[in-house]
């Protein structure tokens, strides 16, 4: 045990140079900084009554395809902005712009998730007061984006039918904090072994209250349910004080 303060962490608080060190108890959370920025983002969304959704999945589950199709179907009546997170390129932002919405690309470089501070900077480039809906497309990764609050109101996790219905058990963190599970690429169901019920059952093993819906942004199947879900959240946001 340490002889200086009895902390049990180091046999002695003296180092090679012989100078006695002192122990300081800190209790500081590494994510506190991210949480502060997330709070700022949340305040801005609420102030402008923008519904902000953090969209997460493995790479290729169909996030950009879903957002682009949603924009084609709902804008300009619904005013939509998108923050795009990818390690490299502006390709997804271009797909969003081609669909008819405003997009800001954040290139995360080597980072595997979006953080609240970067999202906050991206928000400066969007006219929040003129938006109804803001999608934040996270970096394609089913692991660590779950650990970083961006200030969103809801978290949406996508699983495509080509990924296997046991994804929730393999990557439980993401499903633990999600508000809505969207099973994508339903048009491919005939070609793969995937049970929507099984996928949902696994996800609810982690998060019993998780809502879910299935759709295909290619065939349009299920898109109506998705729109209804969006409408419900928007209405709830607008009627809140």
């Amino acid at each position: 045990m340490c002889t200086t303060c009895g902390c049990g962490l180091s046999p002695s608080h003296t180092d090679g140079d012989g100078i006695a060190g002192r122990m300081i108890r800190l209790e500081r959370d590494l994510l506190a900084k991210n949480d502060r920025y997330a709070e700022q983002n949340r305040d801005r969304f609420l102030h402008h009554k923008v519904l902000a959704l953090n969209v997460m999945s493995s790479p290729g589950a169909g996030k950009t395809a879903l957002l682009a199709q949603t924009i084609r179907e709902l804008s300009p009546e619904m005013r939509i902005g998108v923050v795009e997170g990818d390690q490299q390129t502006r390709r997804d932002a271009q797909r969003i712009e081609a669909a008819g919405a405003l997009a800001v690309q954040i290139n995360t470089g080597k980072s595997c998730h979006l953080e609240a501070q970067g999202v906050g900077q991206a928000l400066l480039q969007l006219p929040l007061m003129d938006l109804d809906l803001l999608f934040i497309e996270n970096v394609g990764n089913l692991v660590c984006p779950a650990g970083f609050d961006l200030g969103e109101q809801y978290r949406i996790v996508l699983v495509s039918v080509t990924e296997g219905d046991d994804k929730p058990l393999k990557y439980p963190d993401m499903f633990a904090t999600a508000d809505l599970l969207v099973i994508t690429k339903l048009d491919l169901l005939p070609y793969v072994e995937f049970s929507q019920e099984q996928c949902v059952a696994y996800a609810r093993q982690i998060n019993p209250e998780l809502n879910w819906l299935g759709l295909s942004s290619q065939s349009g199947e299920g898109m109506l349910h998705w729109q209804i879900w969006l409408d419900q959240q928007l209405t709830a946001l607008r009627t809140s004080k």
Partner: peptide
């Protein structure tokens, strides 16, 4: 036997102590 246990502890990362001069 119920599923969906709420995590209370174990998601954080925090600095507990530092030794300084």
């Amino acid at each position: 036997g119920a599923y969906g246990i709420r995590v209370v502890e174990g998601e954080d990362m925090s600095i507990k102590y530092i030794e300084v001069v």
